[in-house]
Write a protein that binds this DNA or RNA. Structure first.
Lengths: 190, 190
DNA sequence: ACCGTAAGTCAACAGGTGATGACATTTTAA
DNA sequence: TTAAAATGTCATCACCTGTTGACTTACGGT
């Protein structure tokens, strides 16, 4: 009697979504080569064979994860007024745990992968640096956008690695203000 | 007639050093699992078997690479006067190509590895955040040191991924000043 | 010059990877 | 109800990984 506990009813699109979500989560935590198909399938509660079946290959699955991500502008908003404060608040939100910055973490972990690297670098340009430098506008917008991205990246990955920088709520508040100031300085025209 | 071009004379300590150097270079560019022993050996101009033989295992080799790295304080100096300017100059130096920040890149790429992650996180604390927060001193030194590290990390990895932010020498100069200002603000007491 | 030992090479291993095709089961439609 | 289509499972493949042992080659002391 073979009977594996199937949580959800047979539903191709639902399992496909579950796999995509699991892949997103895992790729945010480690590089393209480190994350295995079986691992993704396990987290999604599906069979490993379905990953290849539904997405064609691991590489295409990863591509789909990238396509599925939010654009930087969607996350941060295009309204420049109060942007540093908004972003700082997201970065320091203890509930968030880097979920808002998931795309950035995915970028980071696989940007140097021999197989997925080029894909990632294109995606960074198209989905982040591009729209964001447009939102900033003015002279040297791209340079300032890249610097801004570098800050987000640094803080996000640092928190993922070493845990939250701020431990107490008061410290968090102070740091939020500080980071907002820094980000404002980053965007400031050169 | 088996005759492989042996560049250097037979010298165990020299090959060991070559392997260590190659490993350092490659681990700065990709994660612990992504970099293969055969790849390391090829770059070092040695046989793959020697890697395991001389270092015991890939894990121990990686450990050695970490131990071999400079301490953050060595690289940046403990003299606080003019530190932001100095660091900014290193970050924007087009000749450097992230070589000074190699340790940081190594940290970054393998910090989330299931096998090497813990090792790396310990190393970050011991070799970077620790001495650096001591050098900064004052209240909330650790928090400011972590934020400082996050900036270095973000800029280094961003440059490695997308190439240099500044393309012209003038732009580079402007950005160096800007980054120095930012770093100064980061260190500033909370 | 020779021989022992250090240094390097090669082939093979066990285990893990992504991928695939045959099979089993559930769902849907007639 | 029953057959066909859709969905999920399993066993297996070829390849790649880190590691090891047996082998060959080169060096240095006598």
């Amino acid at each position: 009697m073979k009977c594996k506990q199937t949580i959800r009813r047979r539903d191709a699109s639902a399992t496909k979504a579950a796999i995509l979500g699991a892949a997103r989560t895992l790729f945010a935590g480690a590089s393209y080569e480190t994350v295995g198909i079986r691992e993704i399938a396990a987290l999604a509660g599906a069979d490993a064979a379905l990953v290849s079946r539904y997405f064609g290959s691991k590489e295409e699955l990863f591509h789909e994860v990238l396509r599925d991500g939010k654009r930087g502008a969607d996350l941060l908003g295009t309204e420049m007024e109060g942007l540093p404060e908004r972003v700082a608040a997201i970065l320091m939100d203890p509930e968030d745990e880097g979920k808002s910055m998931e795309d950035i973490l995915i970028f980071l972990h696989s940007a140097n992968s021999p197989l997925a690297g080029e894909m990632v670098r294109d995606s960074i340009m198209e989905r982040f640096h591009g729209p964001f430098s447009e939102a900033i506008g003015g002279e040297n917008a791209m340079e300032r956008a890249k610097l801004f991205g570098a800050m987000l990246l640094g803080i996000s990955i640092s928190e993922q690695i070493s845990g939250a920088i701020a431990e107490t709520p008061e410290m968090r508040e102070k740091l939020t203000v500080r980071i907002a100031e820094i980000l404002a300085k980053v965007i400031e025209p050169l």
